[in-house]
Design a protein around this nucleic acid. Structure first.
Lengths: 148, 148
DNA sequence: ATTATATACTTGCATATGCAATTATTATGT
DNA sequence: ACATAATAATTGCATATGCAAGTATATAAT
């Protein structure tokens, strides 16, 4: 039974949310064998790229709040995948040896995730959509930063 | 400090997630004065539209799992906004009088939310993006239904 | 009619994430 | 130099949501 309700289907918020949850499930499957969540994996990617990066900076890149970042790091540190050094009020995060071993598997998992949805949506469509969403996201964020 | 990491920024999953969280916050602000979350509000909209709708059907429309729907209804029922009737193994959900009083305020809040992001993104862009996201979401979901 | 299977809903538990308050450190104004 | 303000990280608490297992009812197969 289909609803005749096209109100929700016109809502960017609603549609984005639904897509986001779908892709999350897809991503979780792809990362499951690494025993790591996609979100933690993305933090690790940044740490690989920029050893010594601060939690604040991680949050900015991942669009996550400081408290969430703290917990991500707690969790990854407990699993000996990253380590903290404190320098004054800041912290410096870098990967451990064990963490570094995940570098390539994570890249592969992301690639496979990419393949999965591009196979369904088509490469061009998927790339365009990703780009458009990024653009919107940036515009909204910038507007916010400048107006409140 | 900007990261030179364009890997994440190319990831549809990552970008969608970020946009989704941004819009969620925006939506929460718009619904806060009604003391209701955007997700609960969307369930109510469906119930207004289709009194007696089943939880299963609500889940299909909202792209949420049965357990989540159960809890939404629990919560709204506790606040006397909806009521359950059970008929065999099914449940029939409808709005109470008190719930119906929210019909118009919720519609207004959605409208204001729409205005907020269209003001930033432009009406045309926002509508197009919403449409594209819905389309992708449907394609992915359909593919899933047919292939596993 | 009885058993087996499928369906609808619910519940227990786990994870993700944010906000507001707190703590620790650094920067600024006088 | 000291008090005040700003910044970075953390912690307590709350909400959202899913998965897997459980319960109740309906349907199908013998």
């Amino acid at each position: 039974m289909e609803s005749n309700d096209n109100f929700l289907e016109n809502c960017l918020f609603f549609n984005t949310n639904a897509l986001s949850r779908y892709l999350l499930k897809l991503a979780e499957k792809e990362f499951k064998h690494l025993k790591i969540s996609p979100a933690h994996a993305s933090l690790l990617l940044l740490v690989f790229d920029m050893p010594g990066i601060s939690p604040k900076n991680l949050g900015l890149n991942l669009h996550l709040t400081p408290s969430t970042i703290t917990r991500f790091i707690d969790s990854l540190e407990k699993r000996k995948l990253v380590k903290r050094r404190t320098k004054g009020k800041s912290a410096l995060i870098s990967a451990t040896q064990k963490g570094l071993e995940l570098k390539s598997p994570i890249a592969i998992a992301y690639k496979k995730l990419y393949m999965k949805y591009t196979k369904i949506l088509g490469t061009k469509t998927a790339n365009q959509l990703s780009f458009d969403i990024l653009k919107a996201s940036k515009e909204l964020t910038n507007y916010n930063d400048n107006n409140e």
